[in-house]
Design a protein around this nucleic acid. Structure first.
Length: 293
DNA sequence: CTACAGGCTGGTG
DNA sequence: CACCAGCCTGTA
């Protein structure tokens, strides 16, 4: 186990911000967050003023510190926002613990192909089922509270995200029943692109490319348009200047930024601000419930 | 029942 | 170029 203090971070908010679909609370104990990413698995709980992870310090530093973007000070971004911009201010206040995760590129390609013209509930279900059907079964370590009230490490099994080759060999037939709908052919196509040594090289090239070239490379792929390409850039390549415009963000822009979002002002990190606004928007319903309206 | 999901493709004007 | 019908299907 490993304890660490991380500012500006909240699991609930990150999990509900629509950037990852494999982070959820344990059914048996809703204090425990389960996180599966890039073939690894970890569980974590929030304590007084820090977080407790089920892994050791070494694994945390090698895998999860990067994943949760802990080295980045989000306070800087928040302070840089226009004090006159009340919408963005409110959004950041509401989603104070939102961060942009460093997620696996291949997983983001598949996940955001699934996300198109789709809703979060169904995306989550499809990703879960995809891993269950085609991913490796693995053993990981989780957290369980013992009778004396202290946390202890316990073994868990989980489904890893399937490799490109697993999806390719499954074919359209193997992808049916996952609730993918017409997106199945896009998933199969990207699996073929990413599979083998040639596919690995393509992924490496993508990682080395700058935002603009990466976006172009992504747009060339079957089923990937402007929005999905931007999501992959932001969540899979950590080009935080990428600013995905979906139906929600478009509505936000129409209502709150009729003259356009000030991208020039926030050049290089507008994607982070987009995430606060997106989170604020999609959780509007639960926010209204809290207010009693 | 209809409308709509963190859109994209392919065809048309 | 701009425009847009059609697409799978679960959920509100």
């Amino acid at each position: 186990m490993y304890r660490i203090q991380i500012k500006d971070m909240d699991f609930e908010q990150i999990a509900r911000s629509g950037q990852c679909f494999r982070m959820k609370v344990r059914e048996e104990d809703n204090r425990v967050w389960t996180i599966a990413a890039a073939g690894e698995y970890v569980e974590a709980v929030k304590e007084e003023d820090c977080f407790l992870f089920s892994c050791g310090e070494k694994e945390f530093e090698e895998t999860w510190a990067g994943y949760f973007d802990v080295q980045t000070d989000y306070g800087c971004y928040k302070r840089g926002v226009d004090s006159e911009d009340s919408y963005l201010r409110e959004a950041m206040e509401w989603g104070w613990g939102v961060r942009i995760l460093h997620q696996d590129l291949w997983e983001m390609l598949v996940t955001f192909l699934i996300s198109q013209n789709n809703n979060i509930t169904r995306i989550t279900g499809s990703v879960k089922e995809l891993c269950k059907q085609l991913g490796d079964k693995r053993k990981g370590t989780g957290l369980t509270m013992s009778s004396d009230g202290s946390w202890e490490e316990t073994e868990r099994s989980y489904d890893a995200f399937p490799k490109p080759e697993s999806i390719s060999s499954a074919g359209l037939k193997g992808l049916s029943g996952l609730g993918l709908g017409y997106r199945d052919k896009y998933i199969l196509s990207i699996a073929k692109t990413c599979g083998g040594s040639e596919g690995e090289q393509w992924l490496l090239d993508l990682k080395e490319a700058d935002y603009k070239s990466a976006h172009t490379m992504l747009m060339e792929q079957y089923g990937i348009g402007r929005k999905v390409a931007d999501c992959v850039c932001l969540f899979g390549l950590h080009h935080v200047g990428a600013f995905p415009v979906d139906t929600h963000v478009r509505q936000i822009l129409e209502v709150h930024y009729p003259k356009g979002f000030p991208l020039e002002r926030y050049q290089g990190y507008a994607g982070i601000l987009q995430q606060y606004m997106f989170y604020y928007k999609i959780n509007q319903i639960s926010r209204n419930k809290l207010r009693g309206t």
